[in-house]
């Protein structure tokens, strides 16, 4: 025999179970168990009646569902959010992804490496001064000296104050250093010494 209960106990089914029972969604065995419980529990019965009242009220409310308009609003909302997201991404340049073909990446890499190698080789080259070859060969005569006798010739030679001078401008680079005592060597001795 069941005694009527006036408070919920741990044996009372929960709201979800009662709701499922009300909707007839429980399996037959569970339906029987809940039915047995309801026969002896006035609180659960009241709750079940509350479900019935709620359903009745919902059914009484005039409900018109405009699916087409709702769909339109939803799509518009999604589109608006998408546009906003794209705009936000466009502002951040560093977030943009750019597609570069692999051969292009490889070619750029090779070019970069070649440039670095060329710079290294160029730096390792000994610095040379600018090549120059200046031939300052004094032309050999003729000179016209108008003398009529030996006395005039001797006088001309004695009064002549010219010097035999060769002036050579050395290259501006490199800077020269004194490496030791000046030397005067026969070419043969110098080559033998080397």
């Amino acid at each position: 025999m069941y005694r009527e209960r006036d408070v919920h106990t741990k044996d009372c089914p929960g709201k979800d179970v009662l709701s499922a029972y009300f909707d007839g969604e429980l399996d037959p065995r569970s339906m029987d168990q809940v039915s047995v419980h309801l026969s002896g529990c006035s609180l659960c019965r009241q709750r079940l009646e509350g479900f019935a009242v709620l359903r009745k009220r919902l059914n009484d409310v005039p409900f018109s569902l405009d699916l087409v308009a709702s769909k339109e609003r939803t799509l518009n909302l999604i589109e608006a959010q998408h546009v906003l997201r794209r705009a936000a991404k466009r502002e951040r340049f560093w977030d943009r992804r750019v597609f570069i073909p692999l051969p292009v990446v490889a070619a750029v890499g090779l070019l970069f490496m070649f440039t670095i190698a060329a710079l290294i080789v160029w730096e390792m080259q000994p610095k040379t001064v600018e090549m120059a070859e200046i031939k300052d060969v004094d032309p050999v005569g003729p000179y016209d000296v108008d003398v009529k006798n030996l006395e005039q010739l001797a006088e001309f030679l004695q009064n002549s104050n010219s010097t035999i001078e060769v002036t050579i401008r050395l290259p501006s680079q490199p800077a020269f250093f004194l490496m030791g005592e000046p030397k005067l060597l026969r070419e043969t001795d110098y080559k033998r010494g080397k």
Partner: peptide, 29 residues
């Protein structure tokens, strides 16, 4: 420069007699 490589070269020729010097002036920076 190193290894006796000539990097600059100039030539000159003068005529003199025994006992008379040929003056050579080389000026750099």
């Amino acid at each position: 420069e190193k290894d006796q490589v000539t990097v600059w070269h100039t030539e000159s020729s003068k005529v003199t007699i025994s006992g008379k010097a040929v003056s050579l002036k080389l000026s750099g920076d």
